[in-house]
């Protein structure tokens, strides 16, 4: 059980050079969590990966050709629930229609959502006002 509350909000331009920053935040949070009894190194990698993939996804779906567009990422941890929300301002996509990778005939793309679904406990993608929100939940107990 993790007793402390952590809340982080980051807003970045829609540029991939900020992926390292976002991933690193997840990695640091995993390493600093109070009372986490699981594999901390694995959790650190998984949060880095999931935040990276979710942010790439938001950048890809951002408003085309708008240099002022941003991606907002929030990370909230309370008790044993880690909640990540990634907001984009693009057209959105149908999360349910994203297929599983074909492991026997792998393709270059399409593994990002697979990573998020596999490593986390819940993933939804919904429209909220003028934003799309990819919400990811991981239970830490």
């Amino acid at each position: 059980m993790c007793s402390s509350v952590i809340q982080v909000e980051v807003i970045i331009p829609t540029q991939t050079k900020y992926l390292d920053l976002i991933g690193s935040i997840g990695e640091h949070i995993a390493k600093e969590l109070d009372g986490y009894s699981g594999d901390r190194e694995a959790l650190a990698y998984h949060l880095n990966l999931v935040l990276t993939e979710a942010t790439v996804n938001a950048i890809k779906h951002a408003k085309f050709h708008d240099p002022k567009d941003t991606v907002r990422i929030t990370i909230y941890i309370r008790e044993n629930e880690l909640n990540i929300k990634v907001y984009d301002h693009g057209q959105g996509f149908d999360l349910e229609s994203v297929p599983l990778p074909d492991f026997d005939h792998p393709k270059e793309g399409g593994m990002g959502i697979f990573f998020i679904r596999t490593l986390m406990d819940s993933v939804t993608y919904t429209r909220q006002g003028d934003c799309n929100v990819l919400e990811i939940i991981k239970y830490l107990s």
Partner: peptide, 13 residues
């Protein structure tokens, strides 16, 4: 020490 789906895709290509 870190690779994402794009990195795996580059190697697969």
């Amino acid at each position: 020490r870190f690779i994402d789906s794009s990195g795996l895709g580059a190697l697969l290509s």
